[in-house]
Design a protein around this nucleic acid. Structure first.
Lengths: 111, 111
DNA sequence: TTGACACGCAACCAAACAGTTACCTATCAT
DNA sequence: ATGATAGGTAACTGTTTGGTTGCGTGTCAA
């Protein structure tokens, strides 16, 4: 399998939970956070957060490395991109129209 | 609420199931199919398919109308587009890069 | 070396989910 | 009218899920 490749189903399932999307949001804002940092302010135990992160990891959306007694988490946007390319894009006439508009506007614009 | 507006969570949850994504695929290929047509070839009872369609309807991804004793189903791509715009796009440097490349190539292209 | 801190692991639980079976209602064609 | 067809409703079931509690392990600092 190509590195960064993903199982569509695992990704869709991982994204189905609001807490997990929130975790991705947090990592998107600041990458490399520890487990405790990611738990901060969430109405959930650390163990619950760890489970969510494990699911995100299985979907290849997050990876981590141990550093001393901490675990640093990193987001991987590739699977999300893949889904957008392979699956979502075909349902999006609006986006294609937006692209067409962009093309038109760029054609009319002289640098 | 804006017509066609959607609850992100309901949409993500609806898309989390492979059978439901398959139903959307089918409706994308051919819109306006009846319940029985949508059931065709699926390893599932009609009732199960009807439940999936109800979930898709609650997420505003599918609508239907009765016509005689049949029920005609129609896909609504708007919610998919919305989550792509509002949520997925921010994780996609690749797509932004693609847009940037497109812009560049269009700038270099003289009509 | 001994707390304190960051995380790992496993059992358990309630609720949600995906699917079934069984039966009922409405519509069409003959 | 009546049978066949298309779909509606509801109860029930096994499995998954999202969360908990309890306790164990490894690492850092005083």
């Amino acid at each position: 399998m190509v590195p960064g490749a993903s199982d569509d189903d695992a990704v869709f399932k991982a994204l189905a939970d609001a807490s997990r999307r929130q975790l991705l949001d947090r990592l998107h804002r600041q990458n490399g956070q520890t487990l405790n940092e990611l738990c901060d302010g969430l109405a959930m135990t650390r163990q619950a957060v760890a489970k969510h992160l494990a699911i995100l990891k299985d979907a290849n959306l997050v990876s981590w490395k141990r550093q001393g007694r901490e675990r640093l988490h990193y987001i991987n946007p590739v699977p999300i991109n893949e889904i957008a390319e392979r699956w979502i894009s075909k349902f999006e006439q609006p986006r294609l129209q937006a692209l067409a508009r962009l093309k038109k506007s760029l054609e009319g614009e002289e640098s």
